[in-house]
Amino acid sequence: MKNKKKALYLTTIILFIMFLLIVLPLLWAVSLSFDRSAISSLPSFSLIPHKPSLFNYQAAAKMINLPRYFLNTIIVTTVNTCIAVLFALMCGFAFAKLKFIGKRFWYVFMLAVMMVPFESRLVPLFLQYRNWRLLNSWIPLMLGQFAYVYGTFFARSYISSIPDSLAESVYIDGGSEWRVFLSIIIPLSLPVVSTLAILQIISNWNAYLWPLVVISDYDKQMISVGVALFNSNEYATYYGPRLAVAVLSAIPLIAVYLVLQKHIVASVAVSGIKQ
């Protein structure tokens, strides 16, 4: 028994040390971002800034319009998440509970899309939007959300487990399928809604390749692309401001994570296994 306790302590200590090593780069980056001496060369390693100051943040504010990128990304992420989750639930409901001609065909039609990586249709999709004269707007970022295939699959398996008897009272009152969907299915599917919403928020926030390709105006750009472009331009030789930008752009998702930590971890674990 004593040995077991010892092993437990030892494992805990090892886990702590590894955890510190993992977050060390982050702590160092935060420290550098507040360090006035991190300009064109790196100061020696320290977790406490050599010359503490807000200079890097002030400099960053002049070099890059972060509030604009934040606002753009928040708008697009919110709209996209709402659209994607709603349409995933609608399809999930239809495939789980409704009878119609061609059901099996359309289900396979949707799932087959998972085998087509987005990247392999990048070029024609780009040309298509160019022909429609929709480049350099948020529309190409949003239209694709009207079919959330993975979400459909996930919602279908969840909605299947909702007993039919719950919907019967609505049908008896002469209510339609839409009524059932809105008043019974959606309220009962909140766990799926939150899982899918979390996955959508993370993936939209990190979207890079597609916004890079379709949006050319800096003013309309998403956070990831905006920051990466800033990183690749000439100011980027200054370490302090660059890391200040890195820290600032990481804050929103970390904040969400700290609030919803258990829920996010659970969502990711579940979605991974089911995928």
């Binding site: 790196l42 990190n206 890079y208 990183n231 890195a246 820290v247 990481a250 998702l253």
Partner: peptide, 13 residues
């Protein structure tokens, strides 16, 4: 969970 672009900027350093 950390925004990819932040991670890349940090690891460049």
């Amino acid at each position: 969970i950390i925004t990819g672009v932040s991670v890349y900027l940090i690891f460049r350093v």
